[in-house]
Design a protein around this nucleic acid. Structure first.
Lengths: 308, 308
DNA sequence: CGGCCGAATAAGGGAAGCCTTAACGTGGGG
DNA sequence: CCCCACGTTAAGGCTTCCCTTATTCGGCCG
């Protein structure tokens, strides 16, 4: 019984799927499945069985979950506690929806680290809206940037940090255009996805690009309409590369929120970052973060191995 | 960072010594030292340094201890919780002073298992008085049989379960005899050791045997005086193999206690065993447990690997 | 009934855990 | 001053983790 195995178990139980847990941990599916197998064998209980709507807990699994969950959290705390005593640079793990990760997460982290007296290291990861709450609860991330999070279990607090407008850009209006979106197009809880639903765009008229920048480039080539954050795409519109195309559902106002654990369970650094988000400097970065970071610099979804 | 490493750390911190922790875990000294080294390296803090009176915690170690301790306990609970849901036989880990381990622990466990409706497996281990409290707190044992335990941290409850008389036996009185004792002669908190101190027996007049039975045999050969539990050695006295030798400090009344965690944190099985100790059957076993178990059947000090 | 999706298994390899015995500091006490 | 007790390091061996890719199983939907 190792902490890694317990961590995998907790994540599968909370996300209801081996596949999603594997994605969240950034490992292959069999890696998670195997961790589960080892735990099952060790404890002599299936723990999780396939059920309608995902993996469901057995009696034994249900008893294990709260205990395992606590152990995982304590494991993260143990490292933090000792490092804090040591004055080592702390790490802040930020998880964000694709658009924020692409444009503002890294500049924000760099600015935050620069103004912080003690050393701070930052990691930015990408996650779907649904996973964010679980990642926070599991201490796999310290703060989540994106849509307001549904707070199933309680213990999360969120506040709006920035408002933006979602628009459609392309070269010309079209009766039945191809829609070019970033990965949040595959996340049902994202604003982009909601927009597509409101426009009744069928699946086969949607093409997903790894970044919003890539979708814009395709749109500029006349491949279709790209969904874009208005103030971020503005320079390209001014340069004439793209035109704003009106649709029945755009522009739409969206609000990004920052969500953390409740103050009493939240790492101090997460609180500091949250306060930083309210500063003029942070607002400026969100308004004009400079050019997008090239895709190759991105970490795979959720770069984190808390225990090792 | 593994649970094994954390367990070793906690035990060293609580016992103040690598050597004692190794004994309690029934592994070699370097095994513990190595676990510590790995943890130190992983966390980048010495955690424990040599100090006057044993290993003492660093700042970081002090922060880690409560967290690690909780993780270890949760690890034990995790296994218990799942097994309980499964109806698997529960295990009861008894730790006892040498005399009790030698004569009564195994018969008691067997009788308890026999009368228990659900399957019960028992393990008996030997420990010095000082270690017992730590073993209970660390969930390395469920119940301790021996002298009343000093309860540093609180959370332990003990009650007297049996009274016995400590006497000296041999073939003839001698002015300055060699004293033949079981391993509790090396445990300063034991009744045997206290008796030797009261008689002002110098170290070089004490010989330690692996069991009380072995000490009696040597005494019967005229090698010296053996310390014995009166009612257990009675048959040999009746057979004329040994004589009771009076001394200024014997006979001395001693009382064995059963100690567990407080009821709210105590495994149900430990409570059941404690109640069992009050039954007529248990009293009968303690009074005349039959012949001593041959030494070879003994487990090494504390047979337990909670995690594996 | 065929195709698909998600979970599980197989096979393999590199890293780490964890134990041992033997040898090596090092500080305190006779 | 030497020795002893105790912690640590060294070296070796075995097991387990833990990840990968490729393949198989099993339920579900059209």
């Amino acid at each position: 019984m190792t902490l890694t195995q317990l961590g995998a178990f907790v994540l599968v139980a909370r996300l209801g799927s081996v596949k999603e847990a594997a994605r969240a941990l950034n490992v292959s599916e069999p890696a998670v499945s195997q961790a589960l197998t080892a735990l099952r064998q060790h404890l002599g209980d299936p723990l999780l069985v396939r059920g309608p709507g995902g993996m469901t807990l057995t009696e034994g699994g249900a008893r294990l979950l709260p205990i395992a969950s606590q152990m995982v959290v304590l494991g993260a705390e143990a490292e933090g506690a000792v490092r804090a005593a040591l004055g080592a640079p702390e790490t802040l793990r930020v998880v964000a929806v694709p658009a924020l990760a692409e444009f503002v997460a890294t500049p924000l982290l760099e600015a935050f680290a620069a103004r912080s007296p003690r050393g701070v290291e930052g990691d930015a990861g990408v996650a779907a809206g649904r996973e964010m709450a679980v990642l926070l609860h599991n201490r796999l991330a310290d703060i989540a940037l994106g849509p307001p999070l549904a707070d199933d279990q309680g213990g999360l607090v969120g506040e709006p940090v920035f408002r933006a407008r979602l628009i459609a850009v392309g070269t010309a209006p079209a009766p039945r255009p191809l829609w070019l979106v970033d990965p949040s197009g595959t996340d049902p809880s994202s604003e982009t996805s909601r927009l597509l639903r409101r426009l009744k765009v069928p699946e086969d008229r949607v093409r997903v690009y790894p970044t919003q920048t890539a979708a814009w480039a395709a749109a500029a080539d006349g491949d279709g309409l790209a969904v874009a954050i208005a103030h971020l795409v503005a320079p390209r519109v001014q340069r004439g590369e793209l035109r704003v195309i009106g649709t029945p559902a755009t522009p739409v106002e969206i609000t990004w929120h920052a969500t953390t654990l409740a103050p009493d369970r939240r790492p101090p650094l997460a609180g500091a970052f949250r306060r930083f988000l309210a500063t003029a400097e942070a607002l400026h970065i969100m308004r004009s973060p400079g050019s997008g970071v090239p895709p190759s610099r991105f970490r795979p979804p959720v770069y984190v191995t808390i225990w090792s």
